[in-house]
């Protein structure tokens, strides 16, 4: 699989503040790459750098296998985009806006305009001026515009903003369709994990301008394991018993009375029996699933992994 986007130590500073910091990012052809991070993490700035709208302070960008130089424009023919809020020439109709886009892109195809309007379910309102559109409709129209020239790469910055739940679902299946049937590579940014989780093949987590993790969602799913959470009033004793008597080596203290035991073969019954027999008072004991959310939360918090062995009270 070839790489469509590759950045090396990509950095952008505004008035000596680094908004994007030494980002090494790789997006492979034909994948949906979820770009996850809180508001203000640098997602939009990075996407603008890919489009040449913002000049990097340092670092390199390679798109479609070629390094982007200041003033390069040819590569833009192959990209569709929606960055931040959708903007249009409001007095023109939806269709006129898309036709204008096609003319500027050097890809004028009336049929493609209608097809993309149909894909976002805006056929029927194409002759209305855009200023009469709701935010959700504008968002759909911006997606239609981005795909109307059948680009190889689609950059979508928070594309589901302003959409209703049904609209969000439609867009999700549209993105998958664009990947599977049209062979598009899609970079989608969002601050919502639940959104990225449902469409992305690979996730890049950005926090305070740094790309802190780039990982395939499949790998994440495999590594998000079950654990047993134990609440006890004597955490030192519990840790001792777990390690010395029950042979559980991977556990972590969550707070002053909670422990999590990972990757153990012991059942809840065996654990509770073992602890009680060794005079550890148990307030509660439950098996839980370590969610994707916690996985990414840990990354952002700087934990790196979630199954570090951490001896209680040691």
């Amino acid at each position: 699989m070839t790489d469509i986007i590759r950045t090396r130590l990509l950095t952008k500073s505004f008035q000596s503040t680094e908004v994007v910091s030494q980002v090494n990012m790789t997006v492979k052809r034909g994948e949906i790459y979820g770009f996850l991070g809180p508001n203000g993490a640098g997602k939009s700035t990075l996407m603008k750098m890919l489009l040449g709208l913002v000049q990097p302070t340092s670092g390199e960008i390679e798109l479609f296998g070629e390094r982007i130089q200041p003033g390069s424009i040819e590569f833009l023919k192959r990209i569709g985009h929606l960055i931040e809020t959708p903007v249009f020439y409001d007095k023109l109709t939806a269709e006129q806006n898309l036709e204008l886009h096609g003319e500027y892109m050097g890809y004028y195809d009336k049929q493609a305009v209608r097809e993309s309007l149909q894909l976002v379910q805006l056929l029927g309102v194409e002759n209305k001026p855009v200023h009469q559109f709701s935010l959700g409709m504008k968002q759909r129209l911006a997606i239609a515009r981005a795909i109307s020239t059948k680009p190889e790469l689609l950059l979508l910055d928070e594309p589901i903003n302003g959409l209703d739940p049904e609209g969000i679902q439609d867009m999700r299946s549209l993105f998958r369709r664009l990947r599977d049937e049209w062979g598009m590579t899609i970079l989608i940014s969002s601050h919502l994990l639940s959104e990225i989780e449902l469409v992305a093949d690979t996730v890049g987590v950005i926090h305070s301008g740094r790309l802190v993790r780039e990982v395939s969602l499949e790998t994440v799913r495999q590594s998000t394991t079950d654990y047993v959470e134990i609440m006890t009033s004597n955490i030192k004793q519990a840790a001792f018993v777990l390690e010395e008597k029950l042979g559980a080596r991977r556990f972590r203290q969550i707070n002053s009375n909670t422990l999590r035991v990972y990757g153990t073969d012991l059942s809840e019954e065996a654990l509770s029996k073992g602890l009680i027999m060794n005079d550890v008072p148990i307030l509660s004991l439950n098996r839980r699933h370590h969610s994707l959310e916690e996985y990414f939360f840990d990354i952002v918090k700087g934990g790196g992994g979630h199954v570090a062995s951490d001896q209680a009270g040691a």
């Binding site: 603008k48 489009l51 424009i73 590569f75 833009l76 809020t85 020439y89 886009h101």
Partner: peptide, 14 residues
């Protein structure tokens, strides 16, 4: 002001 310049400058035109 309307930020449509972002659209315009992302076209493959000098």
């Amino acid at each position: 002001r309307d930020k449509t310049i972002g659209l315009l400058f992302a076209y493959p035109i000098n």
